[in-house]
């Protein structure tokens, strides 16, 4: 059986600078996988490569279907929801509009309305703020909105880039609980990039450690969490 998401021999470039060097990874359907590593190691670049937002060579497939070489918009249509660094919130648009944008590729009008109500049930704070400009939300609320927006796609795979960035510890806790729920209840596979390795390793089943654009090591999240050597040299805690 081939993996759910499979990336092979990725090279990626920012202009002349090569950011990924033959990076390969795979993840199983329905799991949470985390990418760890220092700043500038190539975690964000990996997510961008999956969505074809950077010049990349190598092959990427989703469900055995090749997605590398397709346009970002097409990849999104195939059910990949990417919440970029800084959350990608449309700050000048309302909360409601942000959610609708998440469902931009869907055409089932009824389903979209239903899902918006579901999101409001799951994130009551968003309902309160539904016609407010998204930019007026707090960091935590914006992160909830970003997750909700991604869910509006009814994705198979969610790519999250540093969801905990800039949030208070309690909010981070709550966020990760929600991510766990999303994974369990909605069956969404999640690939999450995190600086907060401790936290990410707790909810993930599998982890990759990236250094200098290469996979430095990979394994079950528990094992990585217990490996003192890895912790000291790559994760810094």
């Amino acid at each position: 059986m081939s993996a759910f998401l499979e990336a092979k021999d990725l090279d990626a470039f920012y202009g002349q600078v090569q950011a990924l060097h033959g990076l390969s990874l795979s993840m199983e359907r329905g799991t949470i996988t985390t990418l760890l590593g220092a700043n500038g190691a190539g975690k964000t670049t990996t997510l961008r490569a999956i969505c074809n937002m950077i010049r990349t060579s190598g092959t990427i497939s989703l469900n055995g279907q090749r997605i590398s070489g397709r346009s970002t918009e097409r990849i999104v249509e195939m059910g990949v929801a990417h919440v970029p660094q800084g959350r990608g919130t449309f700050t000048t648009l309302s909360v409601d509009e942000n959610l609708r944008l998440g469902a931009m590729t869907r055409t089932d009008h009824r389903g979209i309305e239903d899902d918006i109500e579901k999101m409001f049930a799951r994130f009551p704070i968003l309902k309160k703020r539904r016609s407010q400009q998204a930019g007026t939300l707090s960091g935590g609320e914006q992160q909830m909105l970003a997750v909700a927006r991604a869910l509006m796609l009814r994705p198979q795979l969610m790519l999250l880039d540093e969801p905990s960035f800039g949030l208070a510890p309690l909010v981070v806790q709550e966020l990760f609980e929600i991510l766990g729920q999303v994974n369990r209840d909605d069956g969404v596979s999640i690939l999450v990039v995190e600086q907060n390795a401790q936290l990410a390793l707790k909810i993930a089943t599998k982890a990759y450690v990236i250094a200098s654009g290469r996979i430095a090591m990979s394994g079950a999240a528990e094992e990585i969490a217990q490996d003192d050597e890895v912790r000291k040299s790559y994760l810094g805690y």
């Binding site: 970002t72 990608g88 449309f90 700050t91 648009l93 509009e97 944008l101 931009m104």
Partner: peptide
């Protein structure tokens, strides 16, 4: 309208707009 919303989104944040599937 949906297209109107998509146009506004693309104008404010093109990259995020592509990430929700807007051409």
């Amino acid at each position: 309208t949906r297209i109107g919303l998509a146009m506004r989104a693309a104008a404010t944040l093109p990259e995020s707009a592509r990430l929700v599937g807007i051409r």
